[in-house]
Design a protein around this nucleic acid. Structure first.
Lengths: 126, 126
DNA sequence: CCTTGACTTGGAGCGCACTCTAACGTGTAG
DNA sequence: CTACACGTTAGAGTGCGCTCCAAGTCAAGG
């Protein structure tokens, strides 16, 4: 039930590359993953859940360094709950601002598209 | 009325750095800007408008190479209207997808925040 | 005339987040 | 037993988008 995945299987499951999974472990984003007797990595469901959350942070544009901070706080335990909350709240605000910016700037692109549409009609109608 | 701006003034007006403005010109994103007798750049309102649009493309994550394509099409004239439309439409779709992705992944972060909130209440309530 | 400071150029350098390489060890199918 | 795919590591390389540097030109103020 709690199947242990190889690095390739974990890559497939998380959408990251095996290279990236090893890289994340090297830089301390992921705590050393359990090993088989051969020394090969074996990812647990907990590992995958954490990597999934990391994925959400990355997908929302959090820099690696900030994720390392967050991971470090998490390892320090429950006493860092407030700091972790603050970190995530700051990130949440940044992402919301980024979405707003995307929407604003996309608006200008869409305006240009409407202009092009008009010109195409004009050219066709001659 | 159509004040000609120096590179510094243009930087301030567009929010880009003077370095970046020169860089954009070098790589062909911006056509060679007019010069004063001294050889110094003088940006017109048209230049600024175009740079403003470039800004929207960049702010929505279009890679430089794609912007170069778009700029090249524009220089080729009216005959490329359909291609430019296609390029911008593809970009529009990509940005909309990116916004959706941000919102989805942000949701996971917000869920974590709600969990933290609960834990803080629990800790306070003992 | 001299200094100061903004401008010019081509090219080198940087920070980020991977991504790949080399050299080696492991394990399973035929 | 032999292939051969897959795993390991430290460290080097890549691509992007700037960002800065060196060496020089030019204009205005004292």
């Amino acid at each position: 039930m709690d199947a242990q995945l190889t690095v390739q299987q974990a890559a497939e499951a998380t959408g990251l590359s095996a290279h990236t999974l090893r890289y994340y472990e090297r830089i301390g984003l992921v705590q050393p993953v359990g090993r088989a007797a051969s020394g090969h990595r074996r990812y647990t469901q907990q590992d995958l859940a954490w990597i999934g959350f990391l994925n959400c942070l990355r997908a929302t544009g959090m820099p690696i360094a900030r994720m390392q901070e967050y991971a470090a706080l998490l390892r320090e335990g429950e006493s860092t709950l407030a700091e972790r909350t603050a970190l995530l709240q700051a990130h949440q605000a940044a992402v919301q601002a980024e979405i707003a910016s995307l929407q604003t700037h996309l608006g200008a692109v869409e305006a240009k598209l409407r202009l092009y549409e008009q010109r195409r009609l004009q050219a066709a109608g001659k």
